[in-house]
Design a protein around this nucleic acid. Structure first.
Lengths: 210, 210
DNA sequence: CGAAAAACTACCCGTTTCGGTAGTAGCCGC
DNA sequence: GCGGCTACTACCGAAACGGGTAGTTTTTCG
């Protein structure tokens, strides 16, 4: 994919001026080369699948297919490409979504040339360029719930549920009767406001109770 | 907690020199004040719970209780405190762990004074100062699986399972019979190597298939 | 075009789950 | 020391689930 020297960069950006400016900047830089450019997602997906660059810079707001959707498609077709989103808003839900769908980092459109080049090198050397505001959002969504409504025992039972155990198996594991597990689970349902094992597991994992 | 003007910073660091240097730097800075300092986690936890600062800077490698453990305890007692880890290794598992347990950002011990002050202001204004290498690790662990063994329909069914729906309800939602759902779920179990709804949900959410 | 994969429907049967009710026992804090 | 919380055990019946087998139709792709 990479030849160890020149980073091949492709661009997806509907604004001609911005696209050309970026292309010129990249081509003028030692160790980088503008591989291809596109005005919309659809044509980018097609071409990039056949002839992938190392890094793809993609506008987040595009006519037609959105950049967010594009990330998903391109990353599925070519997981090796590092995708940097281009955006005008520095703290945006779309940025957050793009990252969760496969983008590696993002860059503000009004960044200085130096920052742009740094971001490109950064993704290639294993980093994720992003603002600390976005980083915070990701860190928070990644954290365990700091306090759970469940008791210690209930949490233990919930963990077993998440491993797919039946009442009987959990009882055996915790050295209590199946009926006791039944009892704990009823309380868990009450507290989490759910009515089945799968719903409890989903809630527990989504809210990081365990 | 905060008075909108002065950021109160506490330090937990066993090296006297580093601790004192940081304290002096902070006190010499307009808009910041060194609130308290500690040489170990245990005493920090006790004092900080009673008289919390706005920001806590904590060494990650401490004698006695580790900084990672300390983060968890302090964050539980006082969720409002923003914790910045101090470390010598910039890409460390411990940093990653600390962030998942409640730290907001981290800082290398050999950072420039400017960077240190910037990080403190950053956490207070809603950011998470961190290297892009760590950011990448978090982004990746947060991403959806790029390819799932499941078909489109099976994924749809799995999503409904994660919402706690029964076969009957899923059938109604997707306008097919309950038996069809039964059929899809049997295939899902086969592919995911599980044997119950809760196990399937757990696997789906953990591996981010949905 | 034709094979393969996906989507769909159906029935059986034993097991598990869910909700309700009912009771015992230990621990902690006010 | 007593009320409240947690942990534990038990029984019941209706509903849901899990695994099996058996078949049709539609879509996809070489």
């Amino acid at each position: 994919m990479t030849n160890g020297e020149t980073i091949r960069v492709s661009l997806v950006e509907d604004d001609d001026e911005i696209r050309d400016a970026l292309a010129i900047l990249i081509d003028a830089t030692e160790g980088m080369k503008c591989h291809s450019t596109f005005g919309d997602c659809e044509s980018a997906i097609e071409s990039v699948s056949k002839d992938p660059p190392d890094v793809l810079m993609m506008d987040i707001e595009l006519p037609g297919m959105s950049g967010v959707e594009g990330v998903q498609k391109i990353k599925t077709a070519r997981p090796g490409i590092d995708i940097i989103m281009l955006t005008i808003h520095k703290d945006d839900d779309l940025v957050f979504q793009s990252l969760s769908l496969g983008a590696t980092g993002y860059l503000l459109k009004d960044s200085q040339p130096d920052d742009i080049l740094r971001a490109i090198r950064d993704v290639r050397s294993g980093g994720s360029p992003m603002s600390s505001q976005i980083a915070r959002r990701i860190v928070v969504s990644f954290r365990k719930a700091e306090k759970s409504p469940l008791t210690k025992r209930e949490t233990e039972v919930l963990e077993k549920l998440c491993e797919g155990h039946s009442y009987k198996m959990i009882g055996a594991d915790l050295f209590v009767s199946e009926e006791t597990i039944h009892f704990h689970i009823k309380n868990i349902y009450q507290k989490l406001q759910v009515h089945s094992k799968s719903e409890a597991v989903a809630k527990a994992l989504r809210e990081r109770l365990i």
